[in-house]
Design a binder for these strands. Structure first.
Length: 460
RNA sequence: GUCCCCAUCGUCUAGUCUGGUCCAGGACGCCGGCCUUUCACGCCGGCAACACCGGUUCAAAUCCGGUUGGGGACGCCA
């Protein structure tokens, strides 16, 4: 088995493309076959190198390695020329001199009369030759039907009469998508073409092209679309769609891959999969046929799961750049590690973890005004002063802090929670945080004293 | 408009091929409780679906037909 992922570098690699790549990768790896990458850059207008880099970087981040070097369509024009010549020579294609205006007009008229917009075949039997501005069209059989057994959808049939004579070489000499894909997949010996559902209606045209060329037709499998919450095809207006945007938001590649795999594919009740497990279990026959709605809550859950599993030192290294974005850095590894551990179960993303742990590393924390006005009244300040006194007598160890809250509460005759909140506010600036004993230990006596002092000085 | 495809909890899905074991299972989310120094984590419990109509059959989520709904495609873009 040989599969390929063939994105066009006209935008960032998005969620849908990533899943297509993943399924191609899984199918190939499961079968011990090859997975190759082909950059479909024949659209001179919109293709950009930065997008190619984005696609390559995204796949690498996801851990989807490809065999061999990526193939670029713009470097294969000789191959296309060869295939087109064969079609021309065998009278399966012809030169078309129709102007863009005439074609547009025909289409407009067809749409107006509620028909299917299609080329009327004016140049089909004119025996025209090449000329500047001319295009080459494929002679589509007017009768009969073209069918295939889709690996995911099952049997699909199209009446050839529905198809028209598609352009296979544009007037600029470059092949169009359908021609290039067929020439490439044929010459690269691709055995299984797995792509988005939006390509089903290209498939009969391509099969016709394969047959006209007299080359083996590969197997086809069309993956259901990924939709947004409104059940419309996932797009920018649904929020982040590019793979790298998810990296920026603090998602782990394992989580994204796991999520994407479960979008359309399943293996019984299993939800958590490593790439290795997916590879072992993957089967196109267990890929669903209906479109799936992208659900970030579930992605978040998976991300939390993988965050919980990540070894401490690795996790600390992953959070560090996010902390830098929060404006803190230069902390010793040991302190970073301890701090990150306290937020490991409190953040759904690396970004959230950084946000929740930044207070450890700031010179001064800004007190949440609402909480301050509520907690730093006379009583609250008295509690803080008690902490100052008590803490001064304590050795700086976690064991020493043990039970501190209980002692303070009984000493002051208040509830444990009431004793904790003013201190939490002073130390972290807010009312929700990791455990106070951990914070006391990580912050150290000097910082603790200073922050309590700052809170006592706070003027609402 | 034409063509193609799809249809189980709010969402992802198991079950559909090989009808009965499914008054439909799991997961996310949601709700309630427990734990608790806050927030989380964790644990326990709960709500929640076979789109509709006909047919076949002793029996249908599962097979057939239709309806409705949804998606996709109709480029010298890919």
């Amino acid at each position: 088995m040989k599969t390929r992922f063939a994105p066009s570098p006209t935008g960032h690699l998005h969620i849908g493309g990533a899943r297509t790549a993943l399924f191609n990768w899984l199918a190939a790896r499961h079968a011990g076959g090859e997975f190759v990458l082909r950059i479909e850059d024949t659209d001179q207008e919109r293709s950009k190198d930065e997008y190619t880099r984005d696609i390559l970087g995204s796949l690498e981040w996801l851990g989807l390695d490809h065999d061999g070097e990526p193939v670029y369509q713009t470097q294969r024009t000789g191959i296309y020329r060869e295939y087109v010549d064969r079609l021309l020579a065998s009278d399966r294609a012809y030169w078309c001199h129709c102007s863009q205006e005439r074609i547009d007009e025909t289409r407009r008229a067809a749409l107006e009369s509620k028909g299917k917009p299609r080329y009327d075949g004016r140049c089909r039997d004119l025996g025209l030759g090449p000329s500047p501005g001319a295009a080459v069209r494929f002679k589509c059989p007017p009768d009969g039907e073209t069918a295939w057994n889709d690996l995911i959808k099952g049997p699909v049939t199209f009446q050839n009469g529905e198809l028209d004579d598609l352009v296979i070489v544009r007037s600029d000499g470059l092949p169009t998508y359908n021609m290039a894909v067929v020439a490439d997949d044929a010459s690269m010996a691709i055995t299984h073409v797995l792509r988005g559902d939006d390509h089903v209606n290209n498939t009969p045209r391509q099969i016709l092209l394969y047959r006209a060329l007299g080359v083996p037709v590969p197997e086809f499998g069309h993956l259901p679309m990924i939709l947004g919450g409104d059940k419309k095809r996932l797009s920018k207006r649904h929020g982040a769609t590019s793979v790298l945007a998810y990296r920026e938001m603090g998602y782990l590649p394992k989580a994204l891959v796991n999520y994407l795999a479960r979008l359309g594919w399943s293996s019984g009740d299993k939800e958590i999969f490593t790439l290795e497990e997916m590879t072992a279990l993957f089967s196109l026959s267990s890929v669903g046929r209906s479109a799936a709605v992208f659900n970030q809550d579930k992605l978040d859950w998976l991300n939390s799961h993988y965050i919980k599993e990540t070894p401490a030192d690795e996790l600390a290294g992953l959070v560090r750049p996010f902390l830098a974005r929060e404006g803190v850095g230069g902390m010793p590894d040991e302190k970073l590690l301890a701090a990150v551990e306290t937020v490991r179960e409190r953040g759904k993303t690396l970004k959230e973890m950084a946000e929740k742990s930044a207070f450890y590393f700031m010179d001064r924390v800004a007190l949440d005004p609402k909480a301050a006005s509520k907690l730093l009244d006379g009583g609250g300040r008295a509690i803080l002063r008690s902490y100052l006194e008590t803490l001064a007598t304590l050795p700086e160890s976690h064991e020493a802090f043990d039970g501190l809250l209980d002692r303070m509460a009984s000493e002051l005759g208040i509830k444990k929670g009431a004793a904790a909140q003013p201190l939490r506010l002073a130390l972290t600036g807010g009312t929700a945080s990791p455990g106070l004993y951990d914070i006391l230990e990580i912050l150290g006596p000097e910082t603790v004293r200073r922050r309590i002092g700052d809170a006592l000085d706070f003027k609402g």
